[in-house]
Amino acid sequence: MKRHLISAADLTRDDAVLILDTAEELARIADRPIKKLPTLRGRTVVNLFFEDSTRTRISFEAAAKRLSADVINFSAKGSSVSKGESLKDTALTLEAMGADAVVIRHHDSGAPHRLATSGWIGGSVVNAGDGTHEHPTQALLDAFTMRRHLTSGTGQDLAGRRITIVGDILHSRVARSNVHLLSTLGAEVTLVAPPTLVPFAVESWPCEVSYDLDAVIGKSDAVMMLRVQRERMNAAFFPTEREYARRYGLDGERMARMPEHAIVMHPGPMNRGMEITAEVADSPRCTAVEQVANGVSIRMAVLYLLLGGNEPAVATTRTATEESK
């Protein structure tokens, strides 16, 4: 595996399956009386969060702690960032403190990439969501959840499975990461959204696009509902919320038209009544809570595979050359 995890597109099929298989074994730790492994003892993981998050930050924190790493939580609120400190100076501070890995969430797309390639820090960089770009660990935990429900498990990919991702694709880093990862794993991905919420140049993505949810829902193995990200919207993308909910929301009646084995997924946070009704959200077919639990296993796997072994000597030279460019 590479030294950093910036984009789901960087993962090969074998990388992805290795992460999922490792997570499968690590998931078993959760059933033990002592939910801890000594593997990352003495390593420091910094959670660098420039944007609000509960799920992802707690998930990364739990994952690092279960592997016995020391965790430093850093949120932009109440730090020197609110006094105007730049990403570079923050990074240099973290480097001086000896961070072995930096888990970064940033409101700007590309911030993790900048951090990984700038030479500011020597540790691994894990992207925990950057702007509207990518959120690779979310895609991995989604793939993990699908694999558990739709295949025989360990060693398998998602070849031939039909995955439908519905909603605010334009602002969704989850959708982008999922499209890359799921197609790498052999799944057929269809994006469903109003035309205004489909991103520019989507035809270059390895997926289909549809504007009609009812047309694809009957042949989907998993339907992933995305939240409408009003905080990122600066224009009117659809007439009213009621109209959006009627055409692109998932209610009990639509869910009944899904195949028997199909699951409903949601990366959270959910807007009940908007993209998903309470009836669907609380039904046993909805894996939202399971996805959160799987998130800890996936993040343990990623941290273990990035930090558990020896230092790849290649990475130091790579950052050095990229800095000199």
Binding site: D21, P38, G309, N310
Partner: peptide, 21 residues
């Protein structure tokens, strides 16, 4: 009983795949 995560030579080699416990 998989002992990979408890090995004392983990840091001498790249991270390895886990076996089943």
């Amino acid at each position: 009983l998989d002992i990979t995560m408890y090995r004392d030579d983990l840091r001498l080699r790249p991270a390895r795949a886990l076996a089943r416990t």
